[in-house]
């Protein structure tokens, strides 16, 4: 048995504010192999902060502590900023939620992909361009040479998200954190983007953390699902085993979705038990 790609133990993220300290992530632990792991929760459950903390992108004045945060044998908590910067973008990357806000609006798509590649690999501009074209082809963009010359506002949502994925994968990372990669997209386009992610992860043997609020989508996509509530993991589920969910929060989340089969009026509403957050 090889060591896992990422080990997280007792990860905490705190924000000291004037009104008092807010603990966004409150001691979560999990390990990730070369697999697809889903993190599900509602707004404010700490799922995005978990992803950011692993990459070292927690916004100031946030503080991250963990008794163990190990990526491929490297202890991230004690690593120097230089080491973390060299990992970030090349060996571990993150795909952000909305391509409209995450791409540089005044640079063409091609320039941005080439820039991110050359920041991490000592390659010539020509070589980087060739790699960028190949990568755009890998994310099923037809006519990549035309798309390379486009600005982000000329892309549709689905295309923008594929460009983001291409930009993040061009350095060949081992860990990809995708923060709501499909929630700005239509259902029909969503399936396509997920299929591309799925195939690239399988082909390259990457570890993927998929962060989303969409429990059903994540459960149908990932090998394992962690359900977060108020900064804690309340339940871990195997793929496709939503029916086996035992925690009342998970069951409540599933129950309050309107369903095409067997609709109920009125919809059951989630009643929150303060004990879950303890």
């Amino acid at each position: 048995m090889t060591a896992p790609l990422l080990e997280v133990e007792d990860l905490r993220v705190r924000f000291p504010l004037a009104e008092g300290t807010v603990e966004a992530v409150r001691g979560i632990s999990f390990t990730l192999g070369r697999e697809r792991l889903g993190i599900v929760g509602e707004s404010g459950s700490g799922k995005s902060q978990t992803g950011r903390a692993i990459l070292g992108l927690t916004a100031k004045p946030g503080e991250v502590t963990a008794s163990r945060l190990v990526f491929d044998g490297i202890e991230l908590m004690t690593a120097s900023p230089q080491v973390r910067r060299s990992l970030r973008g090349s060996r571990m990357t993150m795909v952000m939620q909305d391509p409209r806000y995450s791409l540089n609006p005044v640079m063409t798509v091609g320039q941005q992909i080439i820039e991110s590649y050359r920041a991490h690999a000592p390659v010539s501009h020509r070589e980087a361009k060739r790699a960028a074209l190949a990568m755009l082809e890998d994310v099923r963009i037809t006519a990549p040479d035309r798309v390379m010359a486009l600005y982000p506002h000329e892309l549709s949502g689905g295309m923008g998200q594929r460009v983001m994925i291409a930009m993040m994968l061009i350095t060949g990372p081992e860990l990809l954190i995708a923060d709501e990669p499909t929630s700005a997209l239509d259902v029909t386009v969503r399936g396509e983007v997920l299929r591309i992610l799925d195939q690239l992860v399988a082909e390259r043997g990457m570890g993927l953390i998929l962060i989303s609020h969409d429990l059903e989508m994540v459960a149908s996509f990932c090998d394992r699902v962690l359900v977060m509530y108020a900064g804690k993991i309340v339940e871990e589920l195997a793929s496709g085993a939503l029916g086996a969910a035992r925690h009342p929060y998970t069951r409540g989340l599933i129950g309050c979705l309107p369903k095409l089969a067997g609709d109920s009026h009125p919809l059951p509403v989630l009643t929150r038990d303060p004990a879950w957050a303890r």
Binding site: D186, V187, C256, P258, K259, P266, L267, V269
Partner: peptide
């Protein structure tokens, strides 16, 4: 999702109470 359920219930209730007609735009078939 949990807030969506509350709003959908509210919309149904108001429709019944005031006899409203709705035109609902959504990409979510459910």
């Amino acid at each position: 999702a949990s807030v969506q359920a509350e709003i959908l219930n509210l919309l149904e209730e108001l429709r019944r109470a005031f006899g409203l007609a709705y035109i609902l735009v959504s990409h979510d078939l459910a």
